[in-house]
């Protein structure tokens, strides 16, 4: 079976961002979030964001990710034909699980943020065996 073509989805511009101090456009990154027995994993598409311009912040159950693009990548460029807007990425999630804040791991490679959020000990799933009578 040949892989299907990627379906285009418009970049979602954020009209109002909470606690925004910096000017400029921000977009919602597309994310995958999955849960394993011991951790939550979040993958976010943040093209143009380098490892030194990303912030991950967990306060209580509020997880915020923010990435900025480098203005120097666009220096001296005059737009001729435009199909997408350029800006940072910002998104906030409310986590349903207790997370062990000390052991969160974040990595960004090829414009994809990979965030590993280990569950706090008490929140880990316990397998309950149901006994048949």
């Amino acid at each position: 079976m040949s892989p299907s073509d990627i379906e285009a989805r418009p970049k979602q511009k954020i009209e109002r961002r909470e606690e925004s101090t910096r000017p400029g456009a921000y977009f919602h990154p597309a994310v995958d979030i999955f849960e394993a027995a011991d951790e939550l994993v979040l993958l976010a598409d943040m093209p143009g964001v380098s490892p030194d311009s990303i912030d991950v912040n967990l306060e209580g159950d509020q997880l915020t990710i923010e990435g900025r693009v480098k203005p120097e990548d666009y220096e001296g460029l005059k737009p001729l034909h435009v199909e997408y807007g350029v800006g940072g990425f910002w998104r906030r999630f409310t986590l349903g699980e207790a997370i062990d804040c000390e052991s969160i791991k974040a990595q960004i490679k090829g414009g994809v943020l990979a965030l590993h959020l280990p569950k706090a000990e008490r929140a880990r799933a316990r397998r309950i065996t149901v006994q048949a009578s």
Binding site: A8, R9, P10, P79, H81, V82, E83
Partner: peptide, 22 residues
């Protein structure tokens, strides 16, 4: 060019930007 929905509304992936750099 596209209205506020942007080019992706037209179903092309990935959208591209073309610049003149002299």
């Amino acid at each position: 060019a596209f209205g506020s929905a942007g080019a992706s509304a037209a179903g092309v992936y990935p959208p591209v930007n073309v610049f003149d750099a002299g």
